[in-house]
Computed example of a mutant assay.
Amino acid sequence: MTIATELKDLEKEMWRANREGDGDFYERVVREDALTVSKHGVAGKADIVPNVTKNENPFLKTDLSHLKVVQISEDSALVTYKATVTALIDDEQQKFQVLATSVYAREDDEWRSVFHQQTEV
């Protein structure tokens, strides 16, 4: 499996875990010093994992497209893409799109999330 394929698959798993409230997955994959930037502000792992675990996220479906991987070094890379999200908001299904970038670092042969940013379009 190529690094590009591995990281694209990992990014899809991050969205799956987010939809399903799989905080254990986030606990394993997100590095201690990781940051997320979104319309809600800047958050670290201490905020991210409990929020995912609570599963208060209204996401029903997330489709990723235009995935591109840029390998920065042997052990670091970024993934950029567009996500189309179907969410249950105010008891109605709504769709919106975000442009996103995630940065990963490989440590002990495992890819770890270091940074994630998304901008709603």
Rank of each mutant, 00 (worst) to 15 (best):
E92T: 11
Y81R: 03
V103P: 00
V69N: 01
T101W: 05
A46N: 14
V103Y: 04
T80R: 12
N55S: 14
L67D: 02
P58R: 08
T86Q: 10
A83V: 12
I72M: 10
V79A: 00
S102K: 02
E56P: 03
T53Y: 00
N57A: 08
K68P: 00
L60P: 06
Q71E: 14
S76N: 08
F96T: 12
K82W: 04
K61D: 13
H66V: 00
T80E: 10
F59C: 04
D47R: 10
Q97Y: 06
T62C: 13
D63S: 15
A77V: 08
A87V: 03
E74C: 04
V85G: 00
L67W: 01
D90G: 04
L60H: 11
L78K: 02
A46Y: 14
E74W: 05
H66K: 13
A83N: 02
T62I: 15
N55L: 05
Y104C: 01
D47I: 02
L67K: 02
S102D: 10
V79P: 01
Q71A: 08
E56L: 09
A87D: 03
V79S: 01
T80L: 12
N51E: 14
Q93W: 03
V98N: 03
K54Q: 13
T80H: 12
E92C: 09
T84I: 09
Y81P: 01
D90H: 10
V69S: 03
Q71T: 10
Y104A: 00
E74H: 08
L78M: 15
A77S: 04
L60T: 10
A46K: 15
H66W: 00
N51V: 02
Q71H: 03
E74F: 06
T84F: 06
L88V: 04
V70S: 07
E56F: 02
K45C: 07
K82H: 08
F59Y: 13
L64G: 04
Y104D: 00
V70H: 12
K68G: 05
L78T: 10
D91I: 03
L78S: 02
L99P: 00
K68S: 11
A83D: 01
V49E: 05
L99F: 14
L60I: 15
K45F: 07
N55C: 12
L99Q: 07
D75K: 09
I89K: 11
H66S: 11
V98E: 01
F96K: 08
K95R: 11
T101N: 01
E74I: 08
S76D: 05
K82I: 14
D90C: 04
Q94G: 04
V98L: 12
Q97E: 15
K61Y: 10
D47T: 10
